[in-house]
Simulated assay, not measured.
Amino acid sequence: MTSADVAREAKVSRATVSYVLNDSPHQKIPEGTRRRVREAAVRLGYAPSAAARSLRKGRSDIVLGLLPDWPIEHVLGRLVQQLTNALAQHDLTFLVHSAAHPARPLREVWKALTPAAVLALDAFPQAEAGAMRAAGIEVVMAVHGSARGGRGAPLVSDEPIGVAQARYLTAAHRRLGYAYPDLAGLGVLASPRLDGVRRVCAELGLPEPDVRTVPVDPDGAVEAVKAWLTADPPVTGVCAFNDDVAMAVLAALRSLGLRAPRDLAVIGVDDIRSAALAQPPLTTVVRDTHTLALGLAHRIVSTLDGVQGCADPIPDALRVHVRVSA
């Protein structure tokens, strides 16, 4: 179906169809005519072509989201859904590409799509960012870091997560451990969270946190738990990178005949669905991904509109969901 078909069905000109369906300003078209055009378009199943919209706006309506080779779990999936909804409110389409092997090379993807903007979760090479901008992509942003070799604060800071974990535990514990993930790619998230824990310990005059890499399996976590409990002074509270790692620590405690928080308090991050089902139920830091999605969408739209935005990280409302483990 074309706009000419809609025009014949509604008994108006093609120009009127274009004005109505594109919500063109300064056009004095009676409301009855507008309603007739919209109803005709619905009956015929007509939708303006993406190419035509791009020509009219002078840019694509696509925002390309780049996912690193990370596990795509509950929280990341929720953020993608909320970003899709937030950008749709600005007539932008959010398309996601995962870098998990053997995905097509990034350059092939953005060249094929020619998006208006690229939003990467992780940092990407400065040369790649320059090539995107040279090809006419107006906005190139990284959520958790600037393009490698470039400057600028991340759009979202993870350090406050570690601060929230440590402040909660240090109310009752004087020696903290940190359960670092065993996936190298997650360092861009884990390192700033660990920095937040270190900052709180330094402010309170406590020892440096005892950092142990903890795989997401009970056997692998046992060695870390033993090391924390035999440290001098012993670790009594652990900040875990996320809920999966925290639950590995809880499982390791059970396998040793121990229990949180009596023998070792544990706090996670993300409040995944299984956190409430852990034994014991997991205390965790909850991130407001809805607010983050709105903030990211606002930064993208503002930059596309040529508005100089704030360079500070997007405010991240955090709360501790207190259960039994800490």
Rank of each mutant, 00 (worst) to 15 (best):
R198I: 13
R199Q: 15
R199A: 14
R199N: 12
C201K: 10
C201F: 13
A202P: 13
L204E: 14
G205K: 13
L206E: 08
P207F: 12
P207I: 06
P207K: 09
P207W: 10
E208W: 00
E208H: 09
P209Q: 08
D210W: 10
D210G: 11
R212E: 13
R212G: 06
T213W: 07
T213V: 13
T213Y: 07
V214S: 01
V214Q: 01
P215D: 03
P215T: 02
V216F: 01
D217F: 01
D217C: 00
D219W: 06
G220D: 03
A221F: 07
E223Y: 13
E223L: 14
A224D: 12
V225P: 02
V225Q: 01
K226W: 10
A227Q: 12
L229K: 08
T230Y: 06
T230F: 05
D232K: 05
P233C: 00
V235I: 04
T236A: 05
G237M: 02
G237Q: 01
G237L: 00
V238E: 02
V238Q: 03
V238R: 00
C239R: 01
C239M: 08
C239H: 05
C239E: 07
A240E: 09
D243N: 12
D243T: 02
D244E: 15
D244Q: 13
D244A: 14
V245C: 07
V245T: 11
A246H: 05
A246S: 09
A246N: 07
A246Q: 08
M247E: 04
A248D: 06
A248T: 04
A248R: 03
A248M: 03
A248C: 03
L250H: 02
L250G: 00
L250E: 03
A251N: 11
A251Q: 12
L253M: 07
R254E: 06
R254D: 11
R254Y: 08
S255Q: 14
L256F: 03
G257S: 06
G257Y: 07
R259K: 04
A260N: 05
A260S: 10
P261C: 08
P261Q: 04
P261L: 07
P261M: 03
R262E: 15
R262Q: 15
D263Y: 08
D263G: 11
L264S: 01
L264V: 02
L264Y: 04
L264I: 07
A265S: 12
A265V: 06
G268I: 11
G268M: 11
V269M: 14
V269A: 09
D271L: 11
S274R: 09
